[in-house]
């Protein structure tokens, strides 16, 4: 709830500021180095339209906040039971490990979806309340679909992390490392033409704020499924409370 609250609060703040910022984009853009603008999706020339302005903040701040939330939630949803030793209570009931794992995955997806939906609804309300000119809704929908898939991907990555790496008491460090690490891979690759290949190692490259590709979505979803399947196989074979 805290992470969702931060994302929602940030959305309210940036859309509230849009009327003051929309005409300043071109001037601000001149002050920022081209490489930096490329690295962080800062296309200030598009600020006249709200989706162009919004993508600058969505791509860097909101998506990072929600990805960290998804990844840390994924990392704790199964491992918390093991850490608190309530897994012994659960796993001595007549329920299979498969059913437990699937229920946890479903809960993870519900939480991620709820957070994303809450942020998206607030965004829509804020745009209706604040923005008076035309809105490129297609652009907003596409970047939100990309962002949602990214969060599901990081949720699955967090769950796999918690099953593959044992004995970690607090997963927040590794989670922030994974999300920020992959983000900066994308940023560095985008900023330096010769290092463009680095960017391809990051999911942010395939699910950016400007490009919408169903094939990329499919590939990232497939990767997320592989993460979940691998995580399940570790969980299935794991000794509990050893």
């Amino acid at each position: 709830m805290i992470w969702t609250g931060i994302a929602v609060g940030f959305t309210i703040m940036i859309i509230s500021l849009y009327p003051s910022f929309k005409d300043m984009g071109i001037e601000m853009g001149k002050a920022i180095p081209k490489e930096m603008a490329k690295a962080f999706n800062m296309d200030m020339s598009s600020w006249q339209e709200v989706s162009g302005y919004y993508k600058t903040y969505f791509g860097f701040h909101i998506i990072i906040i929600l990805s960290i939330f998804a990844c840390s939630f994924g990392a704790s949803i199964v491992s918390k039971e093991e850490k608190d030793r309530t897994s012994e209570f659960l796993l001595t009931k007549p329920i299979s490990r498969k059913a437990i794992f699937l229920t946890k995955v479903l809960a993870l997806m519900c939480y991620i979806s709820f957070s994303f939906l809450a942020q998206t609804m607030i965004l829509v309300l804020m745009i209706f309340a604040v923005v008076s000119n035309d809105v490129n809704w297609n652009h907003i929908i596409e970047m939100h679909i990309n962002g949602y898939v990214l969060c599901l991907f990081f949720g699955a990555a967090g769950l796999l992390l918690s099953q593959a790496v044992m004995g970690v008491k607090n997963y927040m460090g590794p989670v922030v490392g994974i999300v920020m690490g992959t983000y900066f891979l994308h940023a560095i690759g985008s900023a330096i033409d010769d290092a463009n290949w680095i960017s391809k190692c990051s999911p942010f490259h395939y699910l950016g704020v400007d490009d919408f590709s169903p094939l990329s979505i499919l590939i990232i979803m497939l990767l997320a499924l592989i993460f979940l399947y691998t995580g399940f196989n570790i969980f299935k074979r794991k000794d509990i409370g050893a």
Partner: peptide, 28 residues
């Protein structure tokens, strides 16, 4: 016996069910 740990070798039956593949039935 409860299926929380996986045996390294040997076999075990609880309530007539094998602990390796009928753990859920046992726990009922």
């Amino acid at each position: 016996l409860l299926g929380l740990l996986h045996p390294s070798s040997g076999t075990a039956k609880v309530l007539g069910y094998n602990i390796n593949n009928k753990s859920e039935e046992i726990r009922k």
